[in-house]
């Protein structure tokens, strides 16, 4: 398919040169086709940029989250066990959502 299109463009180009040789300057492609091709290329570039941006941003934010989690872990991993560090002061079988709260805060600051 791509080959056929290339051949087609080559033909068009040759047509252009031939008509130019005939003494009159002609365009290789009709105006509207140049326009469409340019828009297609432009949209493709935007798409690539979008994908790259998405991938890059996602990658970096995930990395950040991981590092936050390890920090949290390191902090709570002192003398207490994990559960004790988040156990509620009021109720013995309730736990405060300390880790979640903290990590969100860090993310917004970033």
């Amino acid at each position: 398919m791509a080959n056929a299109v290339q051949v087609f463009y080559c033909l068009l180009l040759i047509l252009g040169t031939v008509t130019a040789q005939a003494g009159k300057v002609e365009r290789a492609l009709p105006n509207w086709l140049t326009g469409i091709i340019a828009v297609a290329v432009f949209l493709f570039l935007v798409f690539v940029a979008f994908i790259v941006n998405k991938a890059w941003c996602k990658g970096s934010s995930q990395e950040e989250k991981v590092s936050v989690a390890t920090n949290e872990h390191a902090m709570t991993n002192g003398s207490n066990t994990n559960l004790d560090s988040v156990r509620s002061h009021e109720h013995n079988s309730a736990y405060e959502n300390v880790t979640f709260h903290k990590s969100e805060e860090t993310v917004t600051v970033m």
Partner: peptide, 16 residues
């Protein structure tokens, strides 16, 4: 903005 840029690119190429 993206649509506008696409339109602009079309016109630029049309009259290139």
């Amino acid at each position: 903005a993206l649509i506008m840029m696409a339109v602009a690119v079309y016109f630029w190429a049309f009259y290139a």
